[in-house]
Amino acid sequence: MNDRVFITECPRDAMQGIKEWIETNDKITYLNSLLECGFDTLDFGSFVSPKAIPQMQDTARVLEGLNESDTKLLAIIPNERGAEDAAKFERIDFLGYPFSISETFQVRNTNATIQESLKRVEAIANICHKENKELVLYLSMGFGNPYGDAWSPDLIVTWAERLTQLFEVSRLSLSDTIGVATPALIQQVFSTILSESKSIQISAHLHTLPENAAILTEAAYTAGCRYFEGAIKGFGGCPMAKDELTGNMPTERMLDWFKVKNIETGVDPKKFTESFVTSSKIFH
């Protein structure tokens, strides 16, 4: 094998925008199938207000039904209260906070300004340290935004450096929330950040049309990225971003590209196929 990459599967991201209620037992069945696949991390749920994301209101009950696995569990939290709720569960490894470099989207997504979010991250980082959890920060709108807010590759690097200097961060996830990243832009952003941030995991959370999955995966990998995030069949997207969503990076497309390139992912092909089939019962 040439190299090793680490895949985060994101069923939470896939399910959160679905308006029709998915039964708790169906979520548990699906997530347990994913836990058998060998993913590095599973973004399984979020501790957020039921009014904001109704589909995630049963995250705690779902967690109770999950089987033991070597796959790490990540929960998304929008504020200090969510962090406190999630940190009570020993099973959860990562707490993830969506930090946007777009002021407009930060308010839209978390009802907080960037300055207020910095205070939230400080509180969340303290909770992670106290409760032995690892902090993941998502740099939302990481490749541009539709609101006219300032954006540049240098701005991304500036924020990455500032956040990792201020807080004890385990992973930064560069998030193309609206699917605007090009291969050239991905290479530029990842090459720059990876050269500056050698002590931290930098992950690619790309939203894209399925036909562009391979070239975007290749661009990030070529730039040195070794942590990738996706969702089976590309389901999901951010319901807070805009009305017309570009879906998540389809995990199966990423896995196909890594297989062709003889790059180890740790994912069991047979188990993944079983989860792929199970997903059809969740996403109609």
Rank of each mutant, 00 (worst) to 15 (best):
I77E: 03
I7K: 04
H205Y: 08
G148F: 06
I92Y: 06
A150T: 06
F272L: 14
T8V: 10
N111H: 10
V157K: 11
I215N: 15
I193G: 02
V189I: 09
S33K: 14
L209E: 12
H129L: 14
D3F: 00
T158Y: 11
S140Y: 10
T217Y: 12
K233E: 13
T222F: 02
P239S: 04
P146Q: 07
C37I: 14
E20M: 12
A214L: 01
G230V: 14
V107F: 07
A214N: 02
R226F: 11
E252S: 06
A184E: 14
G234H: 07
A213M: 10
E80V: 15
K119W: 00
P98W: 09
I18P: 01
L31T: 02
A83R: 13
Q188V: 10
E103P: 12
S49P: 12
E274F: 06
Y147R: 05
M15K: 07
H205W: 07
D256N: 11
I232P: 11
M249A: 03
D93S: 13
P11F: 12
F272Y: 14
F283M: 00
I28Q: 01
R120N: 14
S203W: 02
N262A: 12
E9P: 07
K72V: 00
I92K: 05
E36D: 14
S152N: 10
M141V: 05
R171D: 08
M1W: 04
I92T: 03
K119S: 13
K27T: 09
E103F: 04
Y227E: 06
S197F: 07
M15E: 15
K261S: 12
R61H: 03
V107Y: 03
A52D: 07
P78M: 03
N2K: 12
G237D: 01
I156W: 08
T8H: 01
P54F: 00
D85I: 10
I215C: 15
L174M: 14
S191P: 07
M15I: 15
L66C: 05
M249V: 06
L42N: 03
E90T: 06
T192E: 08
L137Q: 03
V62I: 15
G38R: 09
T278E: 13
D243H: 00
D43Y: 10
A86V: 02
E218Q: 14
T273Y: 15
A125M: 02
N79H: 08
M1V: 05
T113W: 03
T113R: 03
Y227R: 09
L163E: 10
G230P: 13
L245C: 00
M240E: 00
D268G: 12
N111L: 04
V277M: 13
L206M: 14
V121M: 10
F6A: 08
F167E: 11
Q106E: 04
I186N: 06
A160E: 09
D40M: 07
A83T: 04
L216F: 10
N32T: 05
T24D: 06
K51M: 11
L255N: 07
S152H: 09
Y138W: 11
S191L: 04
R108V: 00
A60H: 09
Q188T: 15
L139K: 05
V107T: 02
L35I: 01
E90A: 09
C10M: 12
V121I: 15
L185R: 13
P146Y: 11
E80H: 13
T265H: 01
E103T: 08
A112I: 00
N248H: 04
G247M: 08
